[in-house]
Amino acid sequence: MSTNPWVWIQAFLTLALFSIIFVDNGFYKFAEHAYVGLYAGYTVVVTWFSYIRPSSQWIFRDHKYHYIIPIIIGLLIYTRYIKGWAWVSRYNMAFMVGVGAGFVLARDFKSLLLDQVRATFKPLFVSGSLLTTINNIVLVVGVVSVMWYFLFTVEKKGTAGTISSIGRVVMMVAFGSAFGNTVMARVSLFLGRLQFLLGDWLKLIQ
């Protein structure tokens, strides 16, 4: 067993957080509330270290006072908590959301739309390779039918309904793949904690 007190604290907190899966209890509530508080505080401290403190030099050392304007825009968010002044926070939200929307319009079209559409333009017959031909057909038909499924302005009857059904089947395969991978991710997370408990704490594994 480890003799490091930090490892013991870590083990206690880990077991306290795990205990919720069996029954809601005081240890869990303690660890849960401590985590929420610590994480909120951690975020503030990291932002202070990494940006607020070093960027303050622009004003105090370099005398670039115009940077006070974005700081004020940022601080306006807190007017939400002042009765009668909450509407002022809209300036903050509008600025942040406006720049964000500008970014999406400037960047998303080519990279997330055109390039993905272009990658779907595959030859539907590849001589000498039956597998590639099948793969390309599945890919093209799959993408088109899934997009068709989400086209809600067309009544899905007859051929339109058949294409929509193909889209559903393709999505089911994709969701199955997503589920399988999600299980793997969750097991990995738990594995990591068990590696700590059995290795670093109990020294049962190297």
């Binding site: 999406v104 739309l113 993408v143 088109v144 899934v146």
Partner: peptide, 25 residues
């Protein structure tokens, strides 16, 4: 599955989401 039908399904959804994102922006 991961490279063919999954790509088809996910790409169809992602293209739809990209359209939605641009329209919302």
């Amino acid at each position: 599955i991961l490279n063919v039908p999954n790509v088809a399904g996910m790409r169809g959804i992602q293209i739809g989401a990209a359209f939605g994102g641009i329209a919302t922006a």
